[in-house]
């Protein structure tokens, strides 16, 4: 089981990878979204906010999510560090994403562009 701090660190790594990718920022400048990342086995919620191509991270839930990403803490930490692709846990039901299909695919593309296959 990963801790809240480990999930935060993984999201920081994700945010750092995103910020280094100028192309990704340009591609997402029209995609303003709020993503809630929620662990199912521990008390841990984070909010990723994409606005004007910039990605920021906050602890907790701001209550205005476009997308909700929920999984056990281990899966979340591994996924945001890029050690596993989101597709495998998604296909076996460990990872649950609530939101529009286009947004879900876009989030996976971002992960792919940050961490590779």
């Amino acid at each position: 089981m990963a801790s809240h701090a480990e999930i935060t660190a993984s999201l920081r790594a994700f945010q750092s990878g995103y910020s280094k990718n100028k192309r990704l920022k340009i591609m997402n400048r029209d995609w303003d979204r709020v993503v809630l990342v929620k662990a199912e086995d521990i008390e841990s919620e984070h909010t990723l906010i994409l606005k004007d191509g910039e990605l920021s991270l906050m602890e907790g839930n701001n209550g205005r999510a476009d997308l909700i990403v929920a999984a056990d803490s281990e899966t979340l930490a591994d996924m945001f560090y890029g050690d596993i692709t989101p597709t495998e846990p998604y296909m076996n039901g460990t990872l649950k994403i609530t939101g529009s299909e286009d947004d879900i695919v876009r989030l996976d593309f971002i992960s792919l562009m940050i961490w590779g296959e």
Binding site: A5, T8, T47, M58, E59, N62
Partner: peptide, 9 residues
């Protein structure tokens, strides 16, 4: 350790 610089909502 708990990373710094993470805003609280």
């Amino acid at each position: 350790s708990d990373p710094a610089g993470c805003e609280k909502t």
